[in-house]
Amino acid sequence: MNLCPVCGEKFLDDEISTISSHFYSIALSSDPTHIMWLNRNISKTKMQQYALNDKFTEFYDFSKEGLAMWIKKRFVARFFNDDPNVFVIDMQQPSEYTIMGYVTEHYHFLKQWVKSCAYILGRTDFSEIQKYEFDNISEEYFGKDGQPAHVDLLLQMGESVGLKKVEVISSVPLEKTVRALRYWDHVCSSEHWLDAMVSIHSLELIADKNVKDYGAKYAYFKPEILNDGITKEAVQFLKAGYEADQYHSGDALKLIEKYARLLKMEREVQSYFLRSMDFFYGYLEARHERGKMYEEKL
């Protein structure tokens, strides 16, 4: 099985030619979303169908470095290239409004995150996956090794820049956040648990300390800001994520690589990852938009 990383259409086989011909025919009809994807990932220049097929073969090829590294490099190319996501730019020198936007949208993300982990836990019979997700849920909501819960650290970070907890909890997420949360809820509750797993845990790469090893021009934030320029609560939250997410995404990607091989689901795992990454891109834009809204209001 495979699916289109743009529209989600499912294909019974996982041949590259099936997906490339899907893109080719839809691009001929000037569909904006598929064309934008081609422009961004394959080429801005129109080509013959056979040439597009070759490009897709190259794009999906993970034989040299393995699936986990393929995911890392694709993620870095999308978020940390010369032209990074607008929220990554914000985070290079985060203002109090950046932090406020981060806290508000991320609160809703975390609530969905825990549900997504729970869906995976409930839908797999592999105990190492269940343990992994259980660990993840408890760290988000209850804390680990005497550390406060991740969600509490997030709310404390908001309060440290004047954003009341009640305001965050009663807020309505922005449209791009809603769209992304709805997608992750659907994937995790309805699709194969491994597709769900790659859809959410690959996103933890955003805070991976080692992104520069995979070709990143930027990191999520400059480590110097942990020493100066932001509140101590913001330091505590970012530090926890910085340390935990790197560990999480690394472990998760190893599990994903292992089970994708075992279950012969590598191609569809790649496509689910690509599709999820686009929703995440929009979600990060929502954090930026929310920050701008606070800036205009205050």
Binding site: A27, L28, S29, S30, D31, I35, L38, N39, K44, T45, K46
Partner: peptide, 13 residues
């Protein structure tokens, strides 16, 4: 020479 906004040559609009 391509799309007046983005210069891509896919599509036909």
């Amino acid at each position: 020479e391509g799309c007046a906004l983005c210069d891509g040559t896919w599509g036909d609009y």
